[in-house]
Design a protein around this nucleic acid. Sequence first.
DNA 1: ATCGCAACTTAAACCAAACTTAAAATGCGT
DNA 2: ACGCATTTTAAGTTTGGTTTAAGTTGCGAT
Lengths: 222, 222
Amino acid sequence: MRVLLVEDDRALASDVKAALVAAGYATELSHDGVDAQFLGDEEPFDAIILDLGLPLRNGLEVLRHWREQGNSTPVLILTARDQWHERVDGLKAGADDYLGKPFHTEELLARLEAVVRRHHGHAHNLLEYQGMQLDTDTQQFTLPGRPPESLTGIEYRLLRLLLMNPDKLLSKNSISEHIYEEESLRDSNVIEVYVNRLRSRFGKGIIQTQRGQGYRLGRPES
Amino acid sequence: MRVLLVEDDRALASDVKAALVAAGYATELSHDGVDAQFLGDEEPFDAIILDLGLPLRNGLEVLRHWREQGNSTPVLILTARDQWHERVDGLKAGADDYLGKPFHTEELLARLEAVVRRHHGHAHNLLEYQGMQLDTDTQQFTLPGRPPESLTGIEYRLLRLLLMNPDKLLSKNSISEHIYEEESLRDSNVIEVYVNRLRSRFGKGIIQTQRGQGYRLGRPES
DNA sequence: ATCGCAACTTAAACCAAACTTAAAATGCGT
DNA sequence: ACGCATTTTAAGTTTGGTTTAAGTTGCGAT
């Protein structure tokens, strides 16, 4: 279990880190918003403990940034006891729970565990290829450097089929067989229409046409 | 399992190599882009770990070179933590996964294993002869030292017929019987036209003519 | 050497496949 | 029952793989 602890008060930070390590968490420390943001972007944590009053970059902004990037690591925010509105803002920005300072480390540990368990409860199931990822639980699709987008039912089924057979050439027939239950709309251009939709949402390159043969998953252009 | 580790920081490189060897990978080291490119071209690896900041030749260029050569060895790139765009560029250049520096060796091992497994899972159905290969899942044709190219329907069927009967002499009649359903276009020069197309795409030598008898698969000239 | 036929080469025509759009139908939640 | 989002139909347009066709090359037999 890896945890990122973001807290500018060094003394407090190392106390808390000690407690976390004692509880069995591999803990990474960060003391300002900019550094924290990079760490959160680049490394996979099971949870993040985030103080909102940070130098260089406000904690709320950092949190919003992560959520916009499609990073759904559970975040527990720390707020000053009397800053009631910060908690609301934090939850709205995508935090999973909050804790007022000062706090007892036991309570922190309890909340942390709860937050992690809750998150693992709906552990997200990812279908990934060339940096694109399809979350089969939420039906959301993410391409590198963009926020996740929700898909309609058929958009999702088409994209999932492609991602489950990367590189493979799939004929329109086999596609509609997989997407619909029964002897399908044989002469209908549904597939073409949806290919068109996905291309205009996510870029032309995402699906390649092999005229007369079928379609194939491509790689997203920038 | 052979792994190529490309990393110019010698200290880091030998640490990581030790970890890889301990995990059971036969590991080859390279410290600059030119050397790495040569090794990747000449020797078969199961995976490559590639730092992007290299002396002599940029890691991205090396990766692009390999992919242009049709080399599909899984590549895991290492990027500095603050170079977010490098990841995207790397994926576009054909990397299979990325890892920000600094990293934990356990994570490197996990990603490496995942990448190798994924790559093996992607095993395609290949029709192979003299270094040429026809992928019957993607309908793409690769000759040594070139990136795979997509084929049109009839190009594909002709090439497949030839590769399924290597060395065998195939008359134009038997060819058109295999390629078309019905009583074929007996007096038509379709076959000749397509033989011509394949030769100009992939080299004269690829198909040999036996005047009056038919055609036979040949070997591609370098 | 020359003639004739098979194979080669090129370009243009054709036509079904795929694309694009918008409107109509469907279905779902309130 | 209504409004909204999604799915499907439909019609017009573009694209590019296939085929035809006509001219050229070159092998091999006489």
